[in-house]
Design a protein around this nucleic acid. Structure first.
Length: 560
RNA sequence: GCGCCAGUAGCUCAGCUGGAUAGAGCAACGGACUUCUAAUCCGUAGGCCGGGGGUUCGAGUCCUCCCUGGCGCGCCA
C-alpha cells in the first residue's frame, strides 16, 4: 500500500513540477511513512518540505498545490497539509477491505518479495572451531544466521548457508594431543592436571573411552613425550571428526542446516592459499620484513599491516581466510554475509582490505557482529568459562527450554547488543514468557476456526472469499488490516538492514493487537455477514503469524 | 594510548538507515472468565533519550568534544 501511495505522490509531484517549469529529473526520492499519530491519517509524505529548498518556495504552498493534485485520486479519501508541510493522506476504507481479500487470496505466498531479485547470497555462520561442543553463544549466531537466511530467501534472494570448518593450524594439533593425553590417562600413563593450553572439557574423556574400546590399548607407546607428534595422525582427525559430528547433531536439534561445509585445510592443501598470495604479490601489496611476509592492509584502511606468512614459514589464519573469501566471490555470489562473534570486530578492516586489494567489491561484503550471551537462571548469573571446560552447551539449552523458546529468545535483541538469556524464563509455561504469546495467538485463531466449522462456516472455501470485508469498520479492525499490509514493508526493511530481530517485534505487535481484539469482540456471532468478514480477518492474521513464525524457525501450534 | 560497539522509564530493551506529542515487556497498583482457550485483556503510574556544542524547517537518530561500560589492538585462531 505504501508503494501505491508513493505512486500517487509521484504523479502529483510530476504534475506540479511540470506546471511550474521544474525538471522532473532531479526530484528527490519520495518517502512515504506511517505517522505515529493516527489522527493524521494512514500515510504521510515530507516531499513538500524537501522540495521547498530546491524550489525556493514555502513548503506549505507546495503542499497545497500537491493536495489539489492528490485529491483527484479516487482511492484517497482525505488529504491535508499539516504542521510545517507534511501531506497527510487517508485511504478510502474500501482499499483496505480489498487489500484484506488480496492477502487472503495470496495465502502462504503473501509477502514473498522480489526485493532481492534473485541475487545470490552466501550466509556464513557458526563456523565454530571443531575443538569442542557448541555453547550458547554459538547458538545465538546460529539463530541469527539461519533466520537471516530464511528472511532473505523470502525477500527474493537465492540463499546458501555455509559453515567454515577451521580444521587447520595449531589448535588442531593441540586438540589431537589433548585426546591422546586423555587416552593415555585412561591407560594409567598420565595423571594430574592437563598441560597448559590443552582442551579440558569432559567430552574428550568420553571420546578417549570410545577410542580405547574401538582401537584397544596399543595406539601409542607409554613413554611418549608431550612434544612428540606420534599418533597425532590418528588422534587429530579422529577428534575433529567426532566433534564436528556432534556439532552437526546439535545444529540439527536446533533446526539449523547448511548447504555447504567448507574445510579450511583444503584451502592449504589445494594450493589456493598460495595462489591468492601470488595474486596479491602481483598487485604489489605484499612485502617482506623481519623474515615474515606482510600484506599492506593499511593502504586499504586497516590500522596496520598484517602478516600472512610467519618467519617460520607457516601461513597465518588470515592468509587462508583471504583465499576463502576470494573463493566465495569466485563462486558467483552477489553478496557475502559473515556472522561473527563481536569479539572479532577488529578483524573486519583487514579482511575488507584484502577483498578490496583483490579487486572485489567490498560493498558486497557484510559482517554481522553478534554480541555475547550471558546466561542466568531465575535472575542469578550462571558462570561460564571456556577455559575450565565448564560451559553450558547449546544442546543442554535446547533440551531444557526447547527449540522454539531458544530460537525466539536469541532474536529478541539486536544482534550487536548484549543478550541476557534466562533459562527459567525461557521455559516458563506462563505469561512471563514472550515465546508463547504469538504461538498462543495462533492457537486461539485455530480454535476460532474450529468453532466456525461447528457453526458450518466453510472456512477454507469460497464462503470467506465471498465476504468483501465491508463489515470491518471498527478502528481496531482497520488497524489490524493495516498491520497485516505492513508486513511486506517490514520484511523488506529487515532484509535491507540485515536485521532479523525485527520479526519478533513485528510478531509481538501483531499478536498484541489480535489478543486485544479477541477480548473485545466475538468473531463468530449471530450475524452471518459480520462473522464471515471477521473470519476473513482472523484467517489472514493466522496466515501472517504462521509465515512469521516460520521465518523464525518456530512452530505454529494449533492448540496449546 | 588508539580503534570499534553501546549508554533511552526502577529493570530488560525497541525506535523502520532525519520527521509531528519518544514506545513495549517486566516489576508496582486497580479491574475483567456463564463466551471462539485468562499462556489473554483493560486501566493507572513511570523520561534532561549519558553530558556540552554544532548541522536545518525538524535530531534519540548525523558531525564534534568530554563522561561511563564492554570488546579489540599477536609472526594466535
Amino acid at each position: 500500500m505504501k508503494k501505491r501511495v508513493g505512486e500517487f505522490v509521484r504523479r502529483a509531484v510530476t504534475a506540479v513540477a511540470a506546471e511550474r517549469g521544474f525538471a522532473a529529473a532531479d526530484l528527490p526520492e519520495i518517502v512515504i511513512e506511517q505517522p505515529r499519530e493516527k489522527s493524521f491519517g494512514d500515510f504521510a509524505s515530507n516531499i513538500a518540505m524537501q522540495l521547498a529548498g530546491r524550489w525556493k518556495t514555502n513548503p506549505r504552498a507546495i503542499g497545497e498545490a500537491l493536495r489539489l493534485e492528490l485529491e483527484k485520486e479516487p482511492d484517497l479519501a482525505r488529504v491535508t497539509v499539516d504542521g510545517p508541510g507534511f501531506i497527510n493522506m487517508t485511504l478510502d476504507v474500501g482499499c483496505w477491505h480489498r487489500r484484506l481479500v488480496e492477502i487472503a487470496e495470496a495465502g502462504d505466498d503473501f509477502a514473498r518479495l522480489d526485493y532481492g531479485r534473485g541475487r545470490k547470497v552466501l550466509v556464513e555462520f557458526v563456523s565454530a572451531n571443531p575443538t569442542g561442543p557448541l555453547h550458547i553463544g554459538h547458538g545465538r549466531g546460529a539463530a541469527v544466521g539461519d533466520v537471516l537466511a530464511r528472511l532473505l530467501t523470502r525477500a527474493g534472494y537465492e540463499v546458501d548457508r555455509e559453515y567454515y570448518v577451521n580444521d587447520a593450524g595449531n589448535q588442531m594439533r593441540i586438540l589431537g594431543r589433548s585426546l591422546r593425553w586423555r587416552y593415555l590417562e585412561l591407560l594409567g600413563h598420565r595423571s594430574g592436571p592437563l598441560p597448559e593450553g590443552y582442551y579440558q572439557g569432559e567430552y574428550l574423556v568420553k571420546l578417549a573411552q570410545e577410542v580405547r574400546s574401538a582401537h584397544g590399548d596399543g595406539l601409542v607407546p607409554a613413554d611418549l613425550t608431550e612434544d612428540d607428534d606420534q599418533g597425532l595422525d590418528f588422534f587429530t582427525p579422529y577428534a575433529a571428526e567426532a566433534i564436528l559430528n556432534g556439532i552437526r547433531n546439535d545444529l540439527e536439534l536446533f533446526g539449523v542446516g547448511f548447504e555447504y561445509w567448507t574445510s579450511e585445510k583444503e584451502f592449504f592443501t589445494s594450493g589456493r592459499v598460495d595462489a591468492v598470495l601470488d595474486e596479491l604479490r602481483e598487485k604489489g601489496v605484499l612485502y617482506e620484513q623481519d623474515g615474515a611476509l606482510w600484506f599492506a592492509s593499511s593502504r586499504f584502511g586497516d590500522e596496520k599491516d598484517r602478516v600472512v606468512v610467519r618467519a617460520n614459514g607457516v601461513k597465518t589464519y588470515f592468509a587462508s581466510d583471504i583465499a576463502y573469501h576470494r573463493d566465495k566471490f569466485e563462486r558467483g555470489y552477489d553478496l557475502l554475509i559473515d556472522v561473527w562473534g563481536a569479539d572479532h570486530h577488529g578483524y573486519v578492516p583487514r579482511l575488507r582490505a584484502a577483498i578490496e586489494a583483490l579487486g572485489c567489491d567490498p560493498e558486497r561484503f557484510a559482517v554481522i557482529l553478534v554480541q555475547l550471551v550471558s546466561l542466568s537462571r531465575g535472575g542469578t548469573p550462571v558462570a561460564m568459562s571456556t577455559r575450565s571446560g565448564e560451559f553450558i552447551t547449546l544442546e543442554e539449552v535446547v533440551r531444557e527450554v526447547g527449540r522454539d523458546a531458544a530460537r525466539y529468545f536469541f532474536l529478541t535483541r539486536r544482534s550487536d547488543s548484549h543478550l541476557e538469556f534466562d533459562l527459567e524464563l525461557a521455559k516458563a509455561q506462563n505469561n512471563d514468557n514472550p515465546v508463547y504469546y504469538a504461538q498462543y495467538a495462533h492457537a486461539r485463531i485455530c480454535s476460532i476456526l474450529r468453532k466456525a466449522r461447528e457453526e458450518e462456516f466453510d472456512v477454507h472455501g469460497t464462503e470467506l472469499r465471498a465476504g468483501c470485508g465491508s463489515c470491518l469498520t471498527m478502528p481496531e479492525e482497520l488497524e489490524l488490516i493495516k498491520k497485516l499490509d505492513d508486513f511486506t514493508a517490514l520484511l523488506e526493511s529487515a532484509a535491507r538492514n540485515l536485521e532479523p530481530h525485527r520479526l519478533t517485534y513485528y510478531l509481538d505487535d501483531l499478536a498484541t493487537r489480535f489478543h486485544s481484539y479477541y477480548n473485545r469482540h466475538r468473531v463468530v456471532t449471530d450475524d452471518r455477514e459480520t462473522s464471515r468478514d471477521r473470519l476473513l480477518l482472523v484467517t489472514c492474521i493466522r496466515q501472517v503469524i504462521n509465515i512469521c513464525l516460520g521465518l523464525l524457525g518456530v512452530s505454529s501450534p494449533e492448540r496449546m
